[in-house]
Design a binder for these strands. Structure first.
Lengths: 350, 350
DNA sequence: TTGTACGCGTTATCAT
DNA sequence: ATGATAACGCGTACAA
């Protein structure tokens, strides 16, 4: 490995000149630049990003924490962030939750790990941290951005759709199709984004005098398996086998993974989607248009949300002036899993 | 940010002693260690990983290139590598193909990018690079491991199942269920792993006098959309609407993403899987057990394959002595998308 | 425009 | 067991 001193020597100049010639910072004579360039070429000179980082006191790395790399949702964040970062000549150190603690502990550990790596900035997607965890982190580490949830008092550092409003849209979608007997499969109780969408969902339903019976409210973990389990538990209600209760005709599932598992489970049990039950998902993951039938779902534009978060980070950490959008909106994507229910459809403006 | 000099000063020792006390390398008196530790604690001292990297001439980073973060297959590689790395105190710089060139160019760029980041080692999963690209890279960069394909002459640096054998298993799975009229949806022509599985598949079929008609061999890109398109093209043949040709009763799809799209497409067209057509996937991605119906597929144990590749890297780059397995095997996972075909089942030993 | 010299924060060497 | 000091490779004052 040749260093900049080798290049300087070969070009017959001082190291400072070589550095300037290569980086373009500072003025260097044309022919000197050429000499240095060709010397660098000849030696196959590769600047040490480590030495540069030490000197500049910036590593050029943005740490990204996601609970998991699996699942289309978090993958989208990584893709999107990697693209923005690479275009800016920065890179990503990605960490996911691993180890053996609670999900909160895993997140804390992962973030700690990233911090130890001298990341210039941090982009975090975690629904397992408490608001206080995040508030503390935000205060300790200025260059931090939170994605997919909004922490009260720190709205400027959070990039997310309004999940509560998205929940409202989900409720309307079902009601406008004439569903009133509805069951839900939620995400983790302690996940703020889950809580928000469920809150919005139930509230909007309640505004139209629709109540989801407690026994029709299932909990899940955002993973396939729990979508499957919850659906099985709901099966009698969906089949209308519960005496004294009307048949459940629609299912709102808090993310597409669980929705997909629900459809699979339903199909396996001989129930037809959407003829026997409608299923409404959440996220609009990449696979949603390829389930059988294609999934009707609430789209969360997570790639653009995280790209904007990432650009804010770039602006702060490296004095860039990238455009940063806010106020991203969720919307219902109509595909094939929600059909007309037995009741009169309700109409909503837009 | 306090440095080790601050710690040393506060503890009343030299920097070397402080360094030794903190790292555990070299002998330091018990009470000195305690003094240094508490000084570090008080100052909330965080060693600079950059300075350490410069001094040690190792960044502690392993670069990981995957064509895309989306799709369960590459996500599994990331998860698995991150877990192994974190356990070893190392980290991952992940890059995916982005930019606007060919997939090969994207891979080349991504790898170059990683190299510029002073990664100690490289783990690469790309089916778009040529064997020569990889041979060249392997020679330039000793600490490199290739995952999910085997480059002739570099078997020791490649971690992969035998995709050709896996293709053989796929063919047997279909034949043993009594299928003889078979269509295929392959991955990219220039992807060696795709070529291998298709080669094995066709060869094993041919050994039993089964030929896949050229018009029943479709090409794809490993993405959802092409699985969908190919399936539509195949529809008449599956429906038995092609005069002078027997009805296609089974579909072998080169990865689960396309297989999922195929099922969706089939279902949408009113065809039942597996009653009307069987579908056999490839990879056993995380979602495979949650399609409708659950996908029968050839399992490629990519998490353990890449974990072993990663451990070899760790051994080479950091003189670790982690166990490294080889010779991972693919196997057919029977679920719900392959049913009995119209012909006599063939029997195979194991 | 150019070159010298220092600083970035660590670890390692070598005396003591 | 400990401390001074020299790398590590780069960027950049500052002087020329």
């Amino acid at each position: 490995m040749s260093t900049i001193r080798d290049v300087a020597k070969l070009a017959g100049v001082g190291v400072a000149t070589a550095s300037r010639a290569l980086s373009g910072n500072g003025s260097v004579a044309e022919d000197t630049i050429a000499r240095v360039r060709s010397a660098a070429e000849r030696l196959d000179y590769r600047p040490s990003s480590i030495a540069r980082a030490l000197s500049l006191r910036r590593s050029g790395a943005i740490g990204v924490y996601v609970p998991s790399f699996d699942g289309a949702f978090y993958s989208s964040i990584l893709s999107s962030v990697d693209e923005v970062l690479r275009a800016a000549g920065r890179h990503m150190i990605a960490a996911n939750g691993c180890g053996h603690g609670s999900m909160r502990q895993e997140a804390l550990d992962g973030i700690d790990f990233l911090l130890d790596r001298d990341c210039d900035g941090l982009l975090i997607a975690s629904h397992s941290l408490t608001d206080d965890d995040i508030a503390g982190l935000l205060q300790r580490r200025p260059g931090t951005v939170i994605v997919n949830r909004t922490v009260p008092g720190h709205e400027d550092r959070c990039f997310s759709v309004d999940h509560e409003l998205a929940g409202v849209l989900a409720a309307r979608a079902l009601m406008q199709q004439g569903h009133r007997e509805i069951a839900t499969i939620a995400g983790p109780d302690d996940a703020p984004d889950n809580a928000a969408r469920m809150r919005g969902f139930y509230a909007e339903l309640a505004r139209h005098d629709i109540l989801v019976r407690p026994e029709h409210q299932c909990g899940g973990t955002f993973h396939f398996s729990t979508g499957d389990q919850a659906t099985r538990r709901l099966m009698p209600a969906i089949r209308g086998e519960v005496t004294g209760a009307s048949r459940v005709t629609a299912l709102f599932v808090a993310n597409d993974l669980m929705a997909m598992a629900a459809i699979s489970s339903l199909t396996l049990a001989g129930l037809r989607v959407p003829d026997d039950v409608s299923v409404l998902g959440y996220d609009d993951s990449a696979f949603a248009r390829y389930t059988s039938p294609p999934l009707t779902t609430v789209r969360v534009p997570i790639t653009v949300v995280s790209a904007d978060g990432c650009r804010l980070l770039l602006n702060e950490c490296y004095d860039a002036r990238l455009p940063v959008q806010r106020g991203h909106l969720a919307e219902v994507i109509w595909r094939g899993t929600v059909a007309a229910g037995p009741h009169a459809p309700l109409a909503f403006d837009r």
